[in-house]
Design a protein around this nucleic acid. Structure first.
Lengths: 213, 213
DNA sequence: CAAGTAATCAAACGTATGTTTGAAATACAG
DNA sequence: CTGTATTTCAAACATACGTTTGATTACTTG
């Protein structure tokens, strides 16, 4: 009977430490490149603690990624709702819809470089055990924003809208992902300059007419 | 002395079989997910053949990826040269420059789904031993096309041009990469329709004015 | 044919991995 | 304090991996 209430005594601390270290190491070295021994040592916990608190290595990896990903999507929903209120039920400008989906992800990747790397690793080619999670989570947010975008860009078909939203997502990821500037005689734009550029690019691409059939 | 000429007796066959199987398995299962034993078995060669013909697993992986990547970039250069001739030294339309860089990659990923998956795995988050190769190869092609694009889009700064070319690359990758349509109530555009959409999106994004400073 | 190089093969080496186990320690309830 | 559930710990388990080795076969050259 003495349960359900004494959860956050000490176990929560090691659990949290494991998640944080997992986020960093998995981001830097990938899933296979990170051993649970190195992870446990870095978190200063016993090796068996991983299996005790997360059952398996895969579950730890999935949780480390999914918790930030969900944060981003919650924020996206919030921004979209706020924009909808601001425009009083009317049609949102394309730029406003794009901002709602891009800004939370941009902020999170700027604030947390490790999540940025996890995103780059898992959005296009997630490990098999993560495919379902990514597909569901990303599918839900896509469905919501495509529906909204179709109101803002009525010149696009359903498939066109979805496809161009994919372009937008790809642009975002390539902007934030660590292209190390070595070997390239350019420095990419940084910070707000970079975000303005992304928004301008995606808005123009979204607003342009379809190809001549 | 009896060397340098009897190279393609039988060794070339196993070498080629290994490369083809490597392309497929590495694409499907990733670098760590593919064991040399499974690879050799699939290619119907002895396990030690891999180390004999390629020295290491990493070298095999790098070669399997780089050979197609180089094919694409050679084609890109060719298309850009042809376009330059066609426009007689004048300024190329933005759309023409984009076509030269997008079309070869689009074709290759359509014809070879395995290379498409390798591209998705290695363009953003390559294994450490491949970072230099990708950076050099991709950096060279980027430098050439940014230089050309700056003539076609003189309203953009050097950094803007580079950044928007990154957007374009991201759009391309997200178009071709296998987003399995499960969990999403949309079907992405396919084939030439999809390519037209990509070109329209990127052209509009490239041609739009910069953000107000 | 004879000699020498290239290629194939079965077997073993050394090592690193995720997970499990059972006991010891810690914290809390009655 | 006593007893119970939660958490930590050192050790071992079972297995899979990339690579190397040394012998054997296939082939080309002189």
């Amino acid at each position: 009977m003495a349960a359900e209430l004494n959860r956050n005594v000490s176990g929560e601390q090691t659990r949290a430490r494991l998640l944080d270290v997992a986020e960093r190491l998995f981001a830097e070295l990938g899933y296979d490149g990170t051993s649970l021994r190195a992870l446990a040592a870095d978190a200063a916990v016993n090796l068996a603690a991983v299996n005790y608190h997360f059952e398996t290595k895969e579950a730890l990896y999935a949780e480390a990624f999914a918790r930030r990903f969900r944060e981003v999507n919650v924020e996206r929903d919030k921004l979209l709702e706020e924009a909808a209120e601001k425009w009083g039920g009317g049609v949102l400008p394309v730029r406003e819809v794009l901002h709602a989906i891009l800004w939370p992800a941009f902020c999170m990747t700027q604030r947390r470089p490790h999540f940025r790397d996890l995103l780059a690793r898992n959005l296009l080619t997630p490990p098999p055990f993560l495919r379902e999670v990514v597909a569901r989570e990303n599918g839900a947010i896509m469905a919501r924003f495509v529906k909204e975008m179709m109101r803002s860009a009525p010149h696009l078909s359903r498939e066109q809208t979805f496809t161009r939203m994919q372009f937008t997502a790809g642009s975002l990821l390539f902007l934030v992902a660590s292209n190390d500037p070595i070997k390239v005689p350019f420095r990419p734009l940084k910070g707000s300059k970079a975000y303005e550029e992304l928004l301008a690019f995606a808005t123009a691409g979204m607003e342009t007419g379809g190809p001549p059939l």
